[in-house]
Design a protein around this nucleic acid. Structure first.
Lengths: 321, 321
DNA sequence: ATAGATGCAAACCCTTTGCACATTA
DNA sequence: TAATGTGCAAAGGGTTTGCATCTAT
């Protein structure tokens, strides 16, 4: 499972010069997976290119962090660790106090909460550090868990991005189906039925893509969750459900409900996807956002058409009077 | 706003001896508010008791952390900070990269998410570190924000605990009121009406307490949120609402719905409150949990009575046959 | 030619430790 | 008296820096 490396030759940030040694260090760094401390990197580099000074490695690490190639993480044990950021989204950590290894996770819910909290305190956030310290399964039970390499992380991230999109699509389908069954007004009901049908189709596209992804790694399905999500899928249709409960929804209102839901979903996925480094997961989020947008635009056009027709009818009625 | 100090004379953990110097350091530490680094503490101590060695302060800090008087926090700037834990709940931090000050917050939602994530990964968590790095309002706008001392933190925590309880109570009231209006079965409706009335009464008790608390500090209401919550209040009644939607709720089922809701709320507040150090906030959570429990037991008794009466009626009918 | 990269060793910062001495229980 | 706390200075580790020397552009 060899994964492509970023184009190093083009990497030349902040007035830096390229050099053989810097390239060497960078290559060694990118080849390794997970986190390395500076000293670990010094050792690895020296193993294949003796005579590289510790200071150079330290300086190169700073340069890499500045360039966005590496991220510095602090587990609170007194020494900094570095991890490659290429095709590896910024994430949170579970840190085992016993074996000192760490595993990674993301949570869209935690992230939104932090944004809300920062906003409530008028704080401009640049980054969030979330660490769960404790004891990992392996240290407690002795059960071995296979290590996860960079390529797998990316695949798992893509898998979870798809799962999130699918869950959202499924909530949408549920919502529109329920809306159709609850709506008395026949035109309103037709709108919801159409929306449900569209969601169903999109859902099956996503599911196909999920199957394709799973084919790339037979164990993919069973790998532990990387991206946790709950609020996204369930929250988007809450406002619509509220409106529905009040009843009396005609076709215009049904369209407006649909517009609001699709807009929410589009915005959420766009904003969420944009924060990641280049990766398949990011791409999935952005594609999904794009599709929601297309759908949204279609609904808006339809709504406008409806309004025009109603306006025309009203004008005609006024002229007759 | 002087706040009481813990009984230091009884503080003698892990085979430690008391000594004049240790007491001095402890006193200085407890007097100060917010976080101190070891060196800052050395300075402060020396200002009023010269001739105390740096090593002693370091050793005393370790002892304090071991004794649970202090907590060590790492903001990732290479030096550890220490904060008093007495009457100050474990919390998360917003850390300003510009002025290097930090402000504190809690979020029951973030906490539950982390528990879920840890559980999903079979990880036994001991502690969570959550830091939002960025720029604070003061550094961006120049607007001064008043510093918050320890006593205020405690008051604000109590305020927010009450707010959380009130919000929960209010959701309960809403839910039972809506349930009553939706329930066709007259006995079921009566049960919900009674539940709603009880919630209303409890709510007004809580509100009175809130007013009493506010009287202790005229600015209390306007101070920034310390404890963020969303899920707790809204999540507890979701299952009940779902059940309600299906309709056909008689008195037994209404009682069961009530039991489930009150049990959820009792458990949540108990578990949540238990994690804190001694403080008014903790007390509020535990009291609230206790009241929910009382209410719960009452409902259970009522349910049992109902079942018995139904059983008796059934037996009588059987005998007659 | 010149800005920038490198190696080495020294300096730095925060923290811990060894040891002789002072206190406490 | 035995166990523990204290001060000092030294050592420790992770990381940065000064400086003379190379090396890309």
């Amino acid at each position: 499972m060899e994964r492509p490396l970023p184009d190093l030759t083009r990497l030349r940030p902040a007035g830096g010069k390229r050099s053989t040694k810097r390239d060497r260090i960078l290559t060694v760094f990118l080849r390794q997976q997970g986190h390395v401390s500076a000293d670990e990197l010094v050792d690895r580099v020296r193993r294949e290119a003796p005579g590289i000074g510790r200071a150079t490695v330290y300086r190169t690490l700073q340069w890499m962090v500045g360039a966005g190639v590496a991220r510095k993480v602090d587990f609170g044990d007194g020494r900094a660790r570095f991890e490659a950021s290429y095709r590896h989204p910024r994430h949170f950590h579970l840190i085992c106090a016993s074996c000192h290894r760490s595993s990674e996770f993301l949570s869209s819910d935690v992230e939104s909460l932090m944004e809300e909290i920062a906003a409530a305190r008028h704080f401009a956030p640049t980054q969030a550090v979330v660490q769960i310290h404790g004891t990992c399964e392996e240290c407690r039970t002795g059960k071995k868990t296979p290590p996860i390499d960079g390529a797998t992380t990316e695949l798992v991230f893509a898998r979870d991005a798809l799962r999130m999109a699918i869950a959202t699509e499924r909530s949408g389908l549920d919502f529109y189906t329920r809306a159709a069954s609850l709506t008395k007004d026949p035109r309103g009901r037709t709108v919801f039925q159409k929306l449900a049908a569209e969601e169903k189709e999109h859902l099956s596209t996503l599911q196909k893509r999920y199957r394709d992804l799973s084919a790339q790694d037979p164990q993919l399905e069973s790998r532990p969750t990387f991206l946790f999500f709950k609020g996204a899928a369930s929250g988007l249709f809450a406002a619509g459900a509220e409106q529905l409960r009040k009843g009396g929804v005609d076709d215009a209102q049904a369209l407006l409900i649909g517009i609001r839901c699709e807009r929410g979903s589009h915005k959420f996925f766009k904003r969420y996807g944009e924060r990641f480094e280049d990766s398949e997961g990011k791409q999935i989020f952005l594609e999904f956002a794009g599709e929601e947008r297309t759908h949204l635009e279609l609904l808006i056009r339809e709504y406008k058409g409806l309004m025009e027709r109603q306006g025309a009818r009203a004008r005609k009625a006024a002229a007759r009077r």
